[in-house]
Nucleic acid binder design. Structure first.
Lengths: 225, 225
DNA sequence: TCCATTACCTACTCGCGAGTAAGACTACTC
DNA sequence: GAGTAGTCTTACTCGCGAGTAGGTAATGGA
């Protein structure tokens, strides 16, 4: 079944693809990861087709397998890279010498700004990653733990005394979880109300949480009945 | 290719399946939906195989298609049913004549209790449903809007005057989103720390949110610098 | 200039799972 | 007990998408 693809007989046809050719591996890997994050964010893990990723990355499918391995490994690589970027953004914005409320304020602002400027990245971390099964659970709980730890540490710096910091660190966990979740939901809400700024959002969350938090630290409690 | 399933020659073999047979449609539909919620919660929409659902429901696959339609329609039916159950649980626990803090307290407790007692249902609503594309977006945003509205209304009852309720209702939205998200995240945290009770969780969230909320209503604000 | 290496591609295979065809069994009604 | 309406099953088809076989072309060193 001799086909017509013999270079001598039909070589010069589609000069239509000036696809940048022969780039070093590093660059290609970045392109692939960028594309994968976009596509995973749009469709979720299972709906995302490797063919689409290869199109967006402007490279052919086997290259993806050669460089990043299976679809699963590719997804894990995405999560890992984006989680690092986000956590670095936040912890880079927080200066441990500042007063605690200022720290929290800056952390929140960095978070909202990241979510705004890296929508796809945030979607993958928030919506897509947490949905999938065991293969990604490890990666996910690792990143979630890091995020929670960042916030918990931040919160437990909020009040003076030093010695029982470890205990307080424990007690802070549910509050940290609540704060993180509140931020995540506000981002969802933000997407439908983009007229607000990152500053305004952070301010609102500070007002809601920090004030109540301050009350608690001072021993004021709400009780039923 | 005469096979061996001629009733006259090989009829009485596997009496091993006392699968309840010939039940009314209503009952079957409930079984199917129950099974589907379980399986969707475990694997997510795309990983869930209709074959597995049919096994769990103890019925054959074509029946699912006959009664509930395509996989997509089945998923929508699950979301709709479970969303109704949850919202009814919450609004059933809230009595509009109670003081606002008591209302919020009861609503939160009802929410945490529902999440605890209907883990699969909650997982489908929280994790799986929000992940998928356009087909479910309508259903999802409808249920999310209802939930947000419930909370927003509850919050905007918190402060006295009547006339500007509509305006306040608007302004409350991001706070309601934050509160809902905080609750969702606390449930996630709860799953890994099941030694706590629904009461304790609700109390913590009340303390965090209600106190700060009270401060805000009274005009106290947090400001940077 | 020839060889080795690495980047890169087209065109496949192959399994899995959504959806269906075709009919069997049961329980009513008259 | 014959007809009919609704329940229920086995055993398929068929497309989609993950992963691959096998080859081409550019680069760099001898």
């Amino acid at each position: 079944m001799q086909d017509a693809r013999d270079p001598r007989t039909e070589s010069p046809p589609n000069r239509s693809k000036p696809r940048s050719r022969r780039l070093p591996r590093e660059v290609r890997e970045r392109q692939i990861l960028d594309a994968a994050v976009q596509v995973f964010a749009r469709h979720g893990y299972h709906e995302a087709a490797m063919d689409e990723i290869s199109e967006v990355a402007e490279i052919s499918k086997p290259m993806i397998y050669a460089y990043l391995g299976s679809k699963e490994e590719l997804f894990v690589a995405c999560i890992r890279r984006e989680a690092n970027r986000l956590i670095e953004s936040i912890s880079g914005a927080v200066d441990a010498d500042l007063p605690p409320d200022e720290q929290l304020w800056r952390g929140l602002r960095a978070f909202f700004e990241y979510a705004q400027q890296n929508r796809a990245s945030w979607t993958v971390l928030h919506r897509q990653a947490s949905t999938q099964g065991p293969p990604f659970a490890a990666e996910l709980s690792a990143w979630r733990r890091r995020a929670l730890d960042l916030v918990t540490t931040l919160l437990s710096r909020a009040d003076g005394t030093e010695e029982d910091r470890q205990v307080r660190h424990e007690q802070m966990q549910p509050f940290a979880a609540a704060l993180v979740g509140a931020g995540e939901s506000m981002v969802d809400w933000w997407i439908e109300h983009p007229e607000h700024t990152a500053d305004a959002l952070s301010m609102r969350l500070m007002n809601l949480v920090w004030m109540g938090f301050g009350d608690m630290v001072q021993g004021r409690r709400w009780k039923p009945d």
